[in-house]
Amino acid sequence: MTNTSEQATPLQLRNRDDIVLRLEHLVVNFQVGKQTVQAVSDVSLDVALGETLGLVGESGCGKSTVGRAIMQLPPPSAGRVLFKGQDLSNMSGEALRQTRTGLQMIFQDPISSLNPRRKVRDIVAEGLQIWRRPNQDARVREVMEAVGLDPDTVADRRPHQFSGGQCQRICIARSLALDPDVLICDEPVSALDVSVQAQILNLLEDMKQRYQLTMVFVAHNLAVVKNVSDRVAVMYLGKLCEIGNAEAIYARPAHPYTRALLASIPDMDPDARGQQDKIPLLQGDLPSPANPPSGCRFRTRCPNAQARCAEVEPVMQAVADSMTPDHFVACHFPL
């Protein structure tokens, strides 16, 4: 698995000219005590220019680790991350620092992602200062106005004087200051109040248009992911289960896990109670990532599992009658 050069190109990687970000056979190992845990296991996917890829799954599925591995924070244990054709995972320190400015990241906890001892102006200008860019003040004003903050009243304050939603705006402003191509959002709204989530989601959508961003959006909330994404990738226990057009996946999930996730969302209409009960409830909990099941990792909770699922690990295959092309699933018995 670590020998990438001899592996075939995964099926789900598209052959297009406008691919901005491409992950090939990504593996991330963590050392837990004396055990090695594979948090991300052979994940390949790509994101085209101007596209938003939603990455969903339950906690511990490795979705956030993928986001950070793209940034090389920390670098993946194996596999390649290609950003505009350049292999980030092969780069030396200085070249990596240079190239990585084209990718920026927003985190889940907006408060923990802002240094409490620094002023908002310095936080937003951080990247500009590091790279000694010209016209820093003007750029800082521009991005702060773009995210809906008034530079005159906000710039000289410190993060603890702001609410979570506003802190997230500051984080977005900081990430935009260097004019990146790719924005990686790691659960950007899950720490926010329901009434503030929509503001930030709309803002991200606006910023994507205004600055021509390509986005990777990591989240556990399927409704939020659908709202922002063009394509969606579903992960389970470090593996990619299904990837494809957002509408296609939500309308006709091909992987039993995707279907179960969708069915788990509580229904807002009390009259519809009982309808979703037709879809069998997932039994049990996530297995330990330190000791994943053989074959298909989902088989221990899968209602359709057969003997073959324990023996052979399913590979990605195109979904036969999907609404859109480029819809792939890793299942022996797709729905």
Binding site: G165, D193, V194, S195, A198, Q199, A223, N227, M268
Partner: peptide
Amino acid sequence: EALFNSIPRINDASHTRLQAIPGRP
């Protein structure tokens, strides 16, 4: 009403503009 409308819905198309509640609690 505002809370109900501000929540992204799984049945809405992607990139549906959300009706955000202005301000904060």
